[in-house]
Structures are given as structure tokens and as C-alpha cells.
Simulated assay, not measured.
Amino acid sequence: MAASQVASADGYQPSDSAPALVEVTRWTGFYANAGVGYGMWSASTTTHDGGRCVSCAKTDHSGKGWLGQVGLGYDYQFSNRIVGGVLVNYAFSDIQGRTNDAVFTTAKTSNDSTWAVGARLGWLMTPDVLNYLIVGYTHTHFDGAPLHNSYTGDQLPGAQLHGYKAGGWFIGGGLEVAMRDGWFWRTEARFADYGKKARLETGISPVFELQFDPVVGTATSEIVYKFDWGR
């Protein structure tokens, strides 16, 4: 009471309000993410006819285009610096390029869908900024398309480049920043290798096998919402 009177006499009034609480970023919890990005692929190919090499020299093909990505994941903060987690995501895309058999046909092809499961491990540079590495398994699809004459550009009636789908591995890294109320912003780059697999060219004689060996690189910017941020 005396201290209060002295404070009043000196012109200071005691405050009845509690100290302001500072929100602490929580990285542990389930989350959903969605974003957009850009991708590029390249593929070295050779052309075969029933196991016999028709064009043995490797031909390089490539494509580029946009993608959208959605996903789910779970993170766990092991210490004040280390965060680890697991994730699954799906990307729909139109990363379009062109292939040819190095003989007389050509076709457009697009990397149109990909899914992935993986794990990430990160280092908190500050309580709100996570720098991380990511690795996992991925499966992708390239669509088929009508074949055209490489020299005239005319479509070959009934001739078709078949689609490609295969599994492989991916590795990448990113940066994630806490904003507020459970919202985070993430930017990420990945590299994926799917291995060599034959793509048939049918409707022509002879039927060719295009040995397609793609690698894909992507970069995305995403919004993340962590469901457990307030716990």
C-alpha cells in the first residue's frame, strides 16, 4: 500500500493489465499445403525396332511449363533447432515438349501429373524460418500424342506415341517462413530421376520403341496451414 502511494506521489500509476503474450511458433503438427510453380524436363532417347538399335546416337529432348501442387504432411520439432517430417503431395501440370525418333516421326508430349511421398529434415535459422532438405519416392506420367512426319509436319493417320509412366526418386530443398495464426509460406525446388523406359510408336511400320529417360526439375511457391499451431 505504501509503495502504491509513493508511486502515485511520483506521478506513476500501477498497471492492472497483464504483460503482452508473444506468439511462439510451433512447428509440430499436421498441415495442408497448396501452390503453383514452374517445371522443366529433359530426356535422352535412342530408337529401337524389336530390340535392334535403329538410331543408336542419343537424342536430347526437353520441355517446360507450369504446375500446381497440393499436399498433406506432418512435422515434429525435435529441439529448438531441428524439425523433421513426412509428406505426400500431388502435382497437376503441363510441362510440354517434343520428342522424335531420329528417323522420320515427331510428337508433342507433356508431363501432366506426378505424385510423391517423402521425408524432410530442417534447421531453424530463427524460430520462424526453417531451411530444409527433402528426399523421397515419386511417380510421374507423360501423355501420348499423334505422330507427325518430321520433315513435312503432316500428321500420320493412325500413328501414335504412347504415354510414359514410371517411378523414381527425388531430392530437393526449400525455405519455410512462419507468418501468423498457423499460416506459413514455403518455396521449394526438386530434382527427380525416373529412369529409362520404352515408349511405343504404333501405327507405323515397323513399330519403333523410343527409349525415354527423363529427369524433371521443378520450383514451387506454396501456402501452408498448420492445424495444430495453437496447441
Rank of each mutant, 00 (worst) to 15 (best):
F184S: 04
D49A: 14
P19L: 07
S113T: 11
P14C: 01
A57M: 10
E201T: 04
T220F: 05
D101V: 02
A32D: 01
V88H: 00
R180Y: 06
T25F: 08
W27M: 05
H141R: 15
D101T: 04
F104G: 02
G158R: 07
N80A: 13
V129D: 13
R186N: 08
A18F: 08
W123H: 04
T28E: 00
G51S: 11
P214F: 01
N80T: 15
V83N: 02
G122Q: 07
S205D: 04
G158N: 09
L21R: 13
G144R: 11
T218Y: 03
G217S: 09
I171V: 14
L133G: 14
A20W: 12
S205M: 06
R26L: 02
D143Q: 11
G118L: 05
N33S: 04
V103W: 06
D49I: 15
H48E: 12
A7Y: 02
I171M: 14
F184W: 03
T59G: 15
D128A: 12
N149C: 01
G71R: 05
S8I: 06
P206N: 04
R190K: 12
G217A: 11
P157W: 12
Q69H: 01
T109G: 00
M125F: 13
F92M: 09
G37W: 07
K226M: 04
L124S: 12
D154F: 15
V54E: 14
S79K: 08
A7E: 00
A57C: 06
V54N: 13
C53H: 10
T105D: 02
Y76Q: 03
D143V: 11
A192Q: 10
G85H: 00
M125V: 14
G71M: 04
K196R: 09
S4C: 13
D49K: 09
H148C: 10
Q96E: 13
S8W: 07
A219M: 07
P146E: 03
Y151Q: 07
S79R: 13
T106S: 10
I82D: 01
F104K: 05
L156M: 14
S15E: 04
A18G: 09
G217C: 06
T45E: 11
D60L: 13
Y38W: 15
G118I: 03
A119S: 07
C56G: 15
M40I: 14
Y12M: 06
F208C: 00
A43L: 10
L175A: 15
Y31E: 01
G172N: 12
D112S: 11
K226Q: 09
D154R: 13
G144H: 02
T138W: 07
R81F: 11
T138L: 06
D101A: 00
N111M: 12
L121I: 08
T109K: 01
E201W: 01
